[in-house]
Amino acid sequence: MRYGGDNRGRLLLIVLIVTSLFLITLDLRGVKVIDGVRTGTQTALTPVQKAGSWVVSPFRTFLSDVTHLGRTRNQIEKLKADNDALRLALLNRKVADAELAQLKSVLDLAGKGEFKVVGAKVISQGSTTSFTQTITIDAGSKSGIRSNMTVISGFGLVGVVKIAYENSAVVQLASDPAFRVGARIAGSQEIGILSGQGTRKGVLQLLNNTTDVKVGDAILARGSNNGRPFVPGVPIGEVTAVDNSAGAVTQTADVKFYANFSALGVVAVVVSSPSTDPRDSLVPAKPRPTPIPTVTVTATPSASPASNG
């Protein structure tokens, strides 16, 4: 038999509907009590929801993995690609930072020596199979670079421009066995000829056999007419060993180049030499030894057991 309803049932239904409408009205009018009830319920429910979340999380993860299988794979691929791009960006950033530091130091040196320079990036290292040591830079005759111009880095002499093309130039490194530069010792101003040896070490042949050369002496470029191929005052390296063989016609010394030829990123080509010789002003400051802290331990004898007892 289907329910036909009665007055009591209808009245109850009407009362319930009116009550719900009353609640809606109160809530829409912003009665604080209603908000308080909701907030209180939510506060009470929060621990249950936290517990539920913890319990359900394995199921949720599984379900998410199943439903997003295709999307997850795509997302992984996308993230991998993003990761690679970010790694590359980071690497580029590191390279850029290193180049910036090199550029800053080379500009510092050029500024100190009042050299007019053209900055350039090293774009390739010459092949050593032909026993030459060269680099190629990304600036050429369009930038005012000509052959026989001094090339410096932030540490000192790098080499000399051998051939200048329109947009690039080949630089003969100071370490090249065929490289020769007129040099002088900072301070004593004794002169000699420094030649490359194929390594980071060069040999200085002094013209005066009685010159007193010491290990640690700074060697600078003597300079050429009109600053080509070498501008004066450019630091080259420092003496690491002196050969004072008796009976030798000339005195020689081993010189370690300041520039690190294997880590050249940015160099500068001196396109105009200063009007005055900078003399010894470009000699790099000697590194100060880092003080090693010493700890003194003093042993204090403890009181004898006899005195304690």
């Binding site: 239904l13 509907i17 009550t19 609640l23 809606i24 829409l28 209603i34 009830v37 319920t41 429910l45």
Partner: peptide, 24 residues
């Protein structure tokens, strides 16, 4: 039940919204 559902944080409507619907 509608009142309980209305108390839920996820209920978007005003209090009484689900109540009225569920009564009917």
């Amino acid at each position: 039940a509608g009142l309980l559902m209305d108390l839920s944080e996820t209920a978007p409507g005003p209090l009484g919204h689900w109540t009225l619907v569920l009564i009917l």
